[in-house]
Design a protein around this nucleic acid. Structure first.
Length: 508
RNA sequence: GGUCCGUUCGUCUAGGGGUUAGGACACCAGAUUUUCAUUCUGGUAACACGGGUUCGAUUCCCGUACGGACUACCA
């Protein structure tokens, strides 16, 4: 098997989409599995759609996701430059070669003329209105113009494009690693523009030339490219590179969660989940789209989730680190059908990976988010809080949200609970409990429990009768983490203070 | 419209000529937790349809339906 060299080749027309991350991931997994090379190539041949910042966004996103680039934009390498806009001259040579060998031709048709041709064919009831073997001789190009006219036009600086001369009625076969053999009749393929009038190549030419020059072994890309894959095969053939042609694998698409169609930013917004890996501010609208990172997803969770959208190891194991994915990954086990995007599964993965963090790691996060609000907290306390909350959270930010009562005493209590449970006897128990707690300098969850039991029993009650109210006056909430552990963290002084406040405030 | 690709629980999927069609997420119930969450146990739930081939088809073949992608001087 030849050296595995794969590329992720996005176009900087906006933020990198989550589907793009998956495509990059599959490329990366194959590269790492075979000790190959992962290349990042930027396909910026459309000057009109270029979005500033998109390239940096792509690089940062991959970095965050843990997808490492070995060669390419931002990294360099033996086949630089890796930005297609900087390789114009290279494409021009190959386009010229194709023209010289009569596999391509100059075309001078204006946009208006092209529209007219399509309208005419449509009116005739033609099933497809293409610039192809059937129609090219009715158009204005170097096949219909005399050599002299063509030369004159070129020299006069007339606008032109170079089109591929696709032969009529030839079976073009290709083997897709995911779909098997795909056969298309060349009559179905139109004479694709290879070089645009602005001197830039189109995707088709640039892609084939670069994949050849960069010695790409496997082209792993989205299914939307499958229809044009036969065209690419034809290009390899015309350029004499059929023996070096990469293997193709066209990935099933990520579909929207409800209904059908491919996943779009609109769907994600509607359902309330991120579509981009990182925060992205649209440069034209200035609108902020929250990224997976900022929404609290851990990269290992996202990667595990994404890997399983269309691929599985054939076993019942569902938790995979990047290294395990690399070890197990094979293209053969990629599914054929599109996968609906299910954010609930992503959340489940997130919860799993978040839980596998140590108390110290969670504490670090908690301290940082508290620091943003100028609230100080010792490492010890933060670790205890993390221990209490770790089983209760899906996202890191919940650590801060659910720990609020540790830092701020409740000032009001739920009417319903108080109305229902509060009475003179209970107040008496609470008063006694406060005194006992206050007398205990350092209170532990264990001692908090013992004291409560004793106090309640002594006054003819059961601790269970007091617990709900005690939670309410201590935390302001009807439910939450283990109350005795919470008391330990709060400390005896604070607990006494809060009970005191409740007793003096609540009047029945 | 044309070309290409696809179709197993609600979702992601395993499987494969004879299976109680397996797992995970979600959902529901019970247990644990004197709260909630967690955890544990259990449960509901799928081979798109019609023809072949075959002793037998969810699995192979052909159609149909449905869905998707593509059909630009966009990638």
């Amino acid at each position: 098997m030849r050296d595995v060299r794969v590329r992720f080749a996005p176009s900087p027309t906006g933020a990198l989409h989550i589907g793009g991350v998956r495509t990059a991931l599959y490329n990366y997994l194959l590269a790492r599995k075979h000790k190959g090379t992962m290349i990042l190539r930027i396909e910026d041949t459309d000057q009109n759609r270029y979005v500033p910042g998109a390239e940096e966004f792509i690089i940062q996103s991959l970095e965050w996701a843990g997808i490492q680039i070995d060669e390419g934009v931002g990294k360099g390498g033996p086949h630089a430059p890796y930005r297609q806009s900087e390789r114009k001259e290279i494409y021009k040579q190959y386009a010229q070669k194709l023209v010289d060998e009569s596999n391509a031709y100059y075309a001078f048709d204006t946009e208006h003329e092209l529209d007219a041709m399509r309208d005419r064919l449509k009116a005739q009831g033609d099933s497809n209105q293409q610039y192809s073997s059937g129609t090219r001789l009715q158009m204005k190009n170097s096949l219909t113009l005399s050599a002299e006219e063509t030369t004159n036009k070129l020299q006069a600086g007339d606008q032109y494009v170079i089109r591929l001369k696709v032969p009529a009625n030839e079976e073009i076969k290709l083997t897709d690693l995911i779909r098997g053999e795909v056969v298309v009749n060349s009559t179905q393929i139109d004479d694709k523009v290879l070089m645009k009038s602005d001197g830039m190549p189109t995707y088709h030419l640039a892609n084939v030339v670069d994949d050849y020059l960069m010695k790409i072994s496997h082209v792993i890309r989205g299914e939307e490219w499958l229809p044009s894959a036969p065209l690419h095969v034809l290009l390899y053939k015309f350029l004499g590179w059929q023996n070096e042609m990469p293997e193709f694998a066209h990935l099933p698409l990520l579909l929207k969660p409800d209904g059908n169609g491919k996943l779009s930013k609109r769907d994600a917004d509607k359902m309330g989940f991120p579509i981009f890996p990182l925060n992205w501010i649209d440069p034209t609208t200035n609108e902020l789209a929250i990224g997976y990172r900022e929404a609290g997803y851990l990269p290992e969770a996202l990667i595990n989730f994404l890997a399983f959208l269309g691929w599985n190891p054939g076993t019942e194991k569902e938790i995979f680190s990047m290294q395990e994915l690399i070890d197990e990954f094979t293209i053969e086990r990629i599914g054929k059908a599109g996968a609906k995007f299910d954010i609930q599964k992503a959340q489940w993965y997130n919860q799993y990976y978040l839980r596998s963090k140590s108390d110290a790691e969670l504490a670090e996060y908690l301290i940082a988010s508290l620091a943003n609000e100028n609230i100080s907290c010792s490492i010890e306390k933060a670790k205890k809080i993390s221990f209490c909350l770790r089983e209760r959270i899906t996202f890191p930010k919940e650590l801060r949200e659910q720990s609020n009562f540790f830092f701020f005493a409740p000032t009001q209590f739920e009417e319903q609970v108080i109305q229902k449970k509060w009475n003179a006897d209970l107040a008496k128990v609470l008063g006694a409990y406060r005194d006992e707690v206050k007398a205990t300098r350092t209170i532990s969850a264990q001692s908090a429990k013992t004291i409560l039991d004793n106090t309640a029993t002594h006054l003819g009650m059961k601790s269970g009768q007091v617990l709900q109210v005690l939670r309410m006056i201590l935390t302001g909430q009807g439910s939450g983490p283990d109350l005795m552990m919470s008391i330990e963290i709060l400390g005896s002084d604070e607990v006494a203070k809060r009970i005191d406040y409740a007793i003096t405030t609540i009047k029945i």
